[in-house]
Every structure is written in C-alpha cells, then in structure tokens.
Design a binder for these strands. Sequence first.
DNA 1: TATGAATGAGCATTCATTCAT
DNA 2: CATGAATGAATGCTCATTCAT
Lengths: 223, 223, 223, 223
Amino acid sequence: MQTDKMSDHGDVATTDLKDKKKTGAAPSKRRMESRRKLLAAARTLFIEKGYHGTRPQDISKLAGVGHGTFYLHFTDKLACFLAFANEACDELGSFTQAHMKPNSTPMEQLREVIAGVVEYSNANPGVLSAALTNTNVLTVEEVKTSSPMERWSKNWADLIVRWRDEGVWNEDQDDDADPLFIGHLIVGAIGQGLAYGYLYNIESNKLIDDITRSLMRSMNGEV
Amino acid sequence: MQTDKMSDHGDVATTDLKDKKKTGAAPSKRRMESRRKLLAAARTLFIEKGYHGTRPQDISKLAGVGHGTFYLHFTDKLACFLAFANEACDELGSFTQAHMKPNSTPMEQLREVIAGVVEYSNANPGVLSAALTNTNVLTVEEVKTSSPMERWSKNWADLIVRWRDEGVWNEDQDDDADPLFIGHLIVGAIGQGLAYGYLYNIESNKLIDDITRSLMRSMNGEV
Amino acid sequence: MQTDKMSDHGDVATTDLKDKKKTGAAPSKRRMESRRKLLAAARTLFIEKGYHGTRPQDISKLAGVGHGTFYLHFTDKLACFLAFANEACDELGSFTQAHMKPNSTPMEQLREVIAGVVEYSNANPGVLSAALTNTNVLTVEEVKTSSPMERWSKNWADLIVRWRDEGVWNEDQDDDADPLFIGHLIVGAIGQGLAYGYLYNIESNKLIDDITRSLMRSMNGEV
Amino acid sequence: MQTDKMSDHGDVATTDLKDKKKTGAAPSKRRMESRRKLLAAARTLFIEKGYHGTRPQDISKLAGVGHGTFYLHFTDKLACFLAFANEACDELGSFTQAHMKPNSTPMEQLREVIAGVVEYSNANPGVLSAALTNTNVLTVEEVKTSSPMERWSKNWADLIVRWRDEGVWNEDQDDDADPLFIGHLIVGAIGQGLAYGYLYNIESNKLIDDITRSLMRSMNGEV
DNA sequence: TATGAATGAGCATTCATTCAT
DNA sequence: CATGAATGAATGCTCATTCAT
C-alpha cells in the first residue's frame, strides 16, 4: 500500500516521461527503450484480451523485459492502461487533425474527421474500443479529467465551438445545446457506429457516409 | 466437470425460468424465491461494484443464501450477469412502452421514449451503464444475439421502422439508412448522454430535451 | 459428524439389507428397488469415472431417484463404493466358481479360474480395476477385513490350501509359503496382467495362457 | 488461462530441470532450492495422506514457501505428483542397481533386486504404494509412457531380457512370454507382496525369500 | 419413504505486486 | 536500471451432506 513513487493516475497532460523521478537527470536511452517496448506490448494485449484479461507479467514477457521492469515504469497496471489509452487518444487526435481541410464546408469537414476516425480504427483495429474501456476504478473527478472518453468528448466540443464561431450553422434555431454535451453524443454515436460497422461488416465508405449524415443532422447542419 | 444445469449464456428469449430443468415440473416456490433474492442482490452489486468488482460470494451473502446456492441457479458468474442485464433490458422496455402515447407526433413520441429512459435511469441509478458493460467474453455471434446493447439497438430499430411506415419523416430525402444502424447510434448517444448528465449533474428535463432534439434531427424528423 | 444411522463401513458379511434399520420390518419392495437402481448407477459411474470422479448426486441422477434417497440407503459415499466393490467381488466369485471343473489337473483348474477372471473382466470391463481401487481411507484393520483386495486374496488362499490338501504339488520341495501370501501375489499379478492385456490389447486366450503358466510356476506346480 | 510454464505431464525422460524455460540459462540456485523443498514436502504428504488427501497449499506450507511458488514449479497438482512418483521410481532404480552383484546366479541376482526393493520400501515406508497410485487422469498413451508403474515394469522387462540373453534359463522350454508382460506380473506381485508384508507385519528376510522364490519359479528359473 | 433445494467448508489455481540479487 | 523468483490474499467454483416439505 505504501507508495513512494508518485502516482500518475491523473496527470494526463504530462510528457512521455511520466515515470521520471523528480531529478532533472537525462532520461537514459535504455530506459526509454524499455518503456517503449512495454507500451507497445501493452497496446497489443489490452486490445486483444482487454484490461482484465491482461496481466502485467504478460506485458513484460511480450515486451521482452524482466517482469520487475514493468513496475519501474508504471506504478501499477492501471497507470499502464491509462498511458496506453492516452497514447491512443493522442494518435487519433493527430490522425483526424491531419484529415482536416480548411476552407471546406462543415459537412465536408465533419466527413473528413469521421473518415479519419474510421480510417484510424481500420488501421488500428480494436484500439478505440479498448482505449474507451471503462476500468471502473476512477472517481467522478478522475473520470472528468483523465478518462480517454471524456478527453475525446472535449476535443469534439472544441471543434463544435469553432464551427459555431465560424457561423456555419443554421441561424433560424435557438440551438444552445452545450457543446460538451454534443461532444458526448458524438463520441457515443461514433463508438456504437464503429461497433455496428465491425459486427455487421459494413464497408468503410458507407459507414463514414452514414455516420457523417446522422451527426450532421443531429447538429442541425445542412446535409 | 459435471454440470447439472443447462448453460444459459446465450438464450435470451427464454422465460424467467431459465434455470429450470427441461421437465415441465413446477418451478417450486422456494427455488423461485432463492433466484429472486440472488438476482436482486446481483443487481445491487453489479451496479455498485461493476462486473469485475463483484464476487459470486458477495451476491450470495447479500441475498442471504448459501454460497453454493448461487451455482444452483447460474452456471457461473457471467450467466448471472447476463441474467441481470437482460432483466434490466426488459424492464427498460416495459418502462418506455408504458410511456408511449399513440396519436402524437413522432417528436412527441421520441421525447416520451427518451423521457422514459431518463426516468428509468433516475429511478434505477447505474443500472443501464452496468447492464451495458462489455464483459469481453462474448463472440461476435453471441454479441449479436445476446448482448443487452444489441438487444436494445434492435428495439430502437423496430421503433424507427414503425415510424417510417407511418410516414412521419420528411419525404424530400432519400434517407435509407439502415434502421439497425440508427438504432446503434441512438443507443450510443443515449448512453453517453446519460453519462454526461450524471457526470455534470444536468437536470432531467433539460437532458431529455437535449437528447430528444439531437436524436430527432439525426433521424431527420421535424423538430 | 453425528451419526444416528449405523455405520456400515466394515460389515462385509452382512446381507443385502445392509441399510435396514434394526426393526424386523419387511424390506419393502419400493425400497429394494431404489437400492438396486442406485447400486447399478454406482457401478456404472465408479467404473467410468473412478471413486473420486463420481459424486453421490451423479449416482442418484443416473439411478433416477432423488438426491436425498442416496443417503437413505448408504451412510456415505464410501459405504456405497464398498457395497459396489463387494458386489463385484461376489460376482467374480460366482463366475469363477462356475468355471471350476472337478476331476481335472491343478493346471487345468487354475487355467479355468484365470479364464473365468479374464472372461469376467471382458464381460464387465473396468469393474475389477475399479473395485480394487484403494480409497485410502481405511485403517489397517478395516483393510484386512473389508477391502475387496484382501477378500479376494483370501479366496485364492482357500483355493491354494484345497489344492495342497489334494496333494497336487511337487513333493520334493519344502514349500511352506503362506497361502495368504501366495494369494496376494496372485491377485497382484492378475491385476497387473489384466492391465497389461488391456493397455497392449492382448488377445484373451493368449493372456489366459500366459497368466496361467506364470502363476502355475510360481506355485511350483507342473506346467 | 495464460501459462508461462511448459506442461510436464508427459515428459518423463527429461532431466531434473523439468521446470526450466527452454532457454539454456542457468537454473538459478534459489529456484533449485525452492523446487527441492517442494518435492521433499510433496513426498512426505503424498505418502502420508495420498494424492487426494494432499493439497498444494499443504505442500507449500510444509516446504516453507509461499502458496504461489508451488505453481511456479509445477503446472498443477498432478504434475507435482508425477514428479514425485518419477523421482521415487528413479531412486528405486538406483537402489536396486546398487544391489546387483555381477557373477552371481540369476536366483541370487533376483534375490538381490527383491532385497533392494524391500530395503528401499523399509527405508522409505509408503513411497512405493504412494508412487504407484493410479490417479485416474491419464489416457492410455500417457499411462504407457509416463506412469511410474509402466516405467517400472519396463525396467523389469529389460532385466529379464538380459538374463535371457545370458542363457540362465532352462532350455527345455519354449518360454517365449513377452518380457514386458512378465515385468507387469512382477510389479504386481511385488506390490501386493509388500502390502501383505506391511499388513501382516512380516519380517523382511522372510518376505524377500518368499517373493524371490515365487518370482523365480514364475520365470521358470531353477530355485 | 422420497425428494431436491440448500448449504458452506473446502479446493485448485491466479495474479498484482515486492524484493533480493 | 534490470531481473525474475517469490509471495499470499483472493477468486471462482465444487460437492458430500443435511433438511424442510
């Protein structure tokens, strides 16, 4: 129970050196390499077996490092999972960012973002559903600040605010829905949409079109 | 290795007497009572602690029956969880059914259903998010036929088809989106919407309105 | 721990009504029938699954009687096993008895007995090895008086004494080996011989011949 | 579900390092010591309580190591039992080997081997009967290749072949009995002989003489 | 006499974490 | 920094036996 290492469950915005001691010492190539291997293994296993089906031992073994090394880099299993989930969230962010085309209609922009998500999901099968797993150990405050689902919802909220500011929505409606709320709906819908596409083997382009159209409408944009 | 009981992992459509032997014998009052107590305890604990945080022993103890009795009624922990989840799904169905007012506009109908869901969720806090938990042990086929999430999506799809048949949608659009797909989006959105309402303490009526409006639009109905 | 029924672990020589209360009442047809069905089921299961792999519940179910009925007829699982084992031992006795041809040479007689054992073993596959199972719960005294293995050894000892009395052995040897000791050797050899025949699929007649010849020699008879 | 260790249920011919990973890495002193303590404890308990009466936990406790350590060295209880049984079988082999006196008559040689067995059995009371226990979980093929009883029978068969080659048997008989078959008879007879000696408290030398004489005859050698 | 639901101590096994080397 | 053997509380589940009906 005693913990002389700093807990890193909640500090999402920290750098890659989450595990670094307070000293200003250099990160050491060897150390970085271990961590990289561990995270890669963690990703593989969390996707394949889920949070509860994956043991720290399995991660270490797949990473090719000693079992004890795991705890040199993560305070516990949960910290490792969150590191994985946040990594995935960041990747997805970059991925969709790259898909953004300025000077296009909101509909086009939305479609591009959705396309980015679907593409990412195809390129990294299982990552999103694994990363969005609720590990059921977070408090309400922790969920708000560190759960990948909430972080992603906030990203969408930002996007929506931007679109609103650009005045791309119909003006004939007093649509003052909370952007963060809309962000949640979108994340939920995309999550289920991807699950549906996977379960029933839907072709990517059709999936992108269908999700885009539904979300566009729900946000009251012109289709 | 031997097992007296039929596995009930996949048979969703069965009656409440899931655990009864194949004989047409009477269910026995005592037996029924035990099962009822177990399911009530299971509900309480799965909601409070989640699937992985709940032990069969805890369920038995809370139910006030012997530890072994649990396995007299459920082949294993998972079977008990699915029984709980399906029960919740059925309850929700009845609840929303009761909220349906014929001879009203689709918007009003949709609002009523959403209101039913929100009300149920308020009256049974945590049940939906617990029941929709992915236990990560089902195959694709099992997910399709027995997971509560899929069952609920199908219910929505049925509703949508009904509404379409009643011609309540705008006709100026060739909107042939798969009803089951829409059903998934709705379930995802509602799930996240409820989570948002819970996390940020949103007042019920506002939540109902916001969800309703968004869904209505996503389905291209008149708001 | 309290036991108001009489223990029947050690009383081998009792009649079939082992389980009868002290009253002189008639055995009741229904009662006899239950016991018969239970013993038949026990035989099947002890052979197929072994002592530790068979549960009283399984026996009751296969017998088609209520689970509680088992304990109406046997104080516990062990009593049931011993009843089975002794039944098998008796059967084998009758079987070999029937094979005995008076007025034949010892060699012929021995061969007949062995043939009876092998035949019985073929007709009742697994019974002997199951019945000779050491359940590891008997005290030395109980083993001497009630274990099937000991009973069978005693039967052989009797036979050997009879043969000796008939003066069928070579006289040029002061062979005063304890008949009971010889009985044990024979039982052990036959047990292993049958196991060998089963494992390596030996044809019955060859098996009979080989066992007979070896035993005949070990008893110093003319081959 | 995951398993770091190789199953060792069937691999009898492997070295003492049965539990070592496939790498050629050094066995690690600490690891060896744990295994040694576990096997010693297992021997004590399997002898005293039998297979079904011994729990892995008891073994660990007696060995003075943590409960989990047991499973670091044996895949399961059965693997531990087989390790014990094979160890006993090897010991017995060395013991009897040491008793062999070349340049003596077969009768003398046989007597020496039997004497070795009886001595071993006296020095290690209960080991043989414990090790020869049929755990009833092996398939026919596994029994043939890995059960101690079979291994021991094979050892005897080898001895018999050697004696035959040395031409120590009577030549006036076409005794072509399968050596492996004879090996089985011997093992069975010795097992029962030892049990008899134990049950009825026979003095060692008499026991050795009696068993030797009987076996000698059964193999048709000169007594 | 028969039934079968109920019992709970007991079992084999796991796994997140620690620590000696 | 890295290692991997060790740990032991905890888990899901079993089964011989009891008992209310």
